[in-house]
Each structure stands twice: as structure tokens, then as C-alpha cells.
Amino acid sequence: MLFFSLFVDGFANLGNFKVIASNSAALLMLSCGMGVVIISRGLDLSIVAAMVAGAATFGILTVAGWSVFPAFVVTVLAVLAIGVFNGWLIAYVEIPGMLTTLASAMVITGFFRYEVLNGEYLLMLPSDSRAVQLLSGDAPAILAVLVFIASWLILRYTTMGRVTYALGDNAAAARLSGLPVRLTTLGIYAFAALTALFAGLVVAAASSTVDFRIVTNGSLLFEAILVVVLGGIPLRGGRGGMRNILVGLALIAVLRNGMTLLNLTTQTQDMFKGVVLLIAIVIDNYINPRDTENDTVGDL
């Protein structure tokens, strides 16, 4: 931060911080979902696909003349179905989470692009629609804060939250103790999909488009993981909380904005972000060293 404020003109003014904040709203919501999944020692690679699918569903329904509320309810149900299906495959069919969500991301994007958008990757939304207007101004920030508070409450005070930590700490012990591990896994992935929906709505409203390329481009998914790991939640799960998400978000927002002001190309930025993620993981391994005696097969 100090580096950028000293060497980049225009970094330290107030307007720039406002841009950082609004750009970060969607990323914050995605990271909340991703954080909960990672605390349970999972990884949701379908989060961006669910985000775009949710926004597209909502967009199509409103363009087709539905009013905002019923369209929203149907969209929520559709996105929940994606999350529950992910969770079901992971908890009941016992397919590893990374594979499950990778596959479902492909299925979702494929389905929307060829069945719904007839091969297009862009869905244009009329910028004068009521939904878009509802989500302008301070709405994204408020929504992000609400999602953040909800995640915090869930992790801290609900049964599901306690079991999420138990799962991340020792899934075998959680199962053997009789905790509702399957139902919780279902809930975790459903919740992640839901946070993705809100992120998708905010992004779609800001640009009046739903762009499926952000799924295949992968950069946003990467950033969501980066926020979680940079914030200090170990990929091994069981530790950390929403506080860490805030720390991670602040770090990545500064990094992203600073690099843009330095006029780095997106490709160079991706490269830097990759290096930063690797460094973060190395530091995490150093702070929480692996104990060869306790490692089980398949550990990250």
C-alpha cells in the first residue's frame, strides 16, 4: 500500500478508494462463499459458473416480462438447486469436491451458452430495467455487507457453522461423533452458490450484461481463492473466519488497483497474482508445518 501511494500518482486520493470499494463488493460476496467452503476443507470451483448462471436466469426472466420479485424467487431456487446438487454429489455420492464442482461448472456454462443463449456468450440487459436501477448506487455495497454479516452469523452461531469447522478440522472424527456432516456439506455448497448469485447480480447490473467469458477466463475464481488464502485461511480448513476474508480482500484490492494504476496488462497482473498466491501458500505451510505423523492420504 505504501509502495503504491508513494510511487503511483493518483493512488492516494479519495475517489480511487471509492472505486476500490465498489469493485470489491462482488469479490467480497464470492469470497464469503468460498471462505465457508474452504473452512470445511473443500474448494468450490463452480462458484463463478453459478454466479453467471444466476444472473443470466434473472436477466432472462425479467427481460421476458416477469416482475422483479417472482423472478428473483425462481432464480434463488435455481441457484440453490445448483449448490444442493454439488453438495449431494460430494456428501452422498462421495465424489471429491474439487472434481464435482469443476464438472458442474462445465455443465452449467455449457447448458446456458448452448441451450439458453444459443451459442452466445453475452446476454445484454436493458439498462433502464428496474432490476438494474435497484442495484445501482450504494446497493452493491449494502448487499455485500449483508452477505458478509450473514456468513459471519452462520459460521459463528449456527449448528451448520460449528459443523463446518469440525469438518475442516477432522472430517472423519466429525462423522464418527455423529455430527450431521452430510446435511452440512449440502448447506455449505448451497450457501456458496447463493453468495455467488448476489455477486452475479451486482456485476450484471453494473455492466448491464451477463458475460459468460468470466467463467472460462478463470481470473475471478482465482481471485476469490486468493482472497481467502491471502487472508490467512489455510486450504487445509478448520481455521479462520470472516475477519480473514476482510484482510484478504483489503490486500487483493490494493494489489489489483495498484497494478492497474501502474498500467500493467491483465496478463501481467494474472502473473503477479499467481506469484502472490504461491507465496501465500508457502508462508501458510511454513506457519502451519505439516506433521508427517498426522498427514492422511489426499491431504492438500
Binding site: 460449528r162 505423523e293 492422511t296
Partner: peptide, 24 residues
Amino acid sequence: KLDGMFDNMSVAQNIGLGWMAKFG
């Protein structure tokens, strides 16, 4: 260590989770 306890949690959290598994 393999499937008995939650390493990173406190004594209270471990026992509490056991109780919650049945009564919660």
C-alpha cells in the same frame, strides 16, 4: 488423531460438539 478429536479446537469445543451431535 486420525478420527477421534478436532485438533485445532479447544477442550470445550470438542466436548461441546460431541454433545451437540446428539442433543442439538
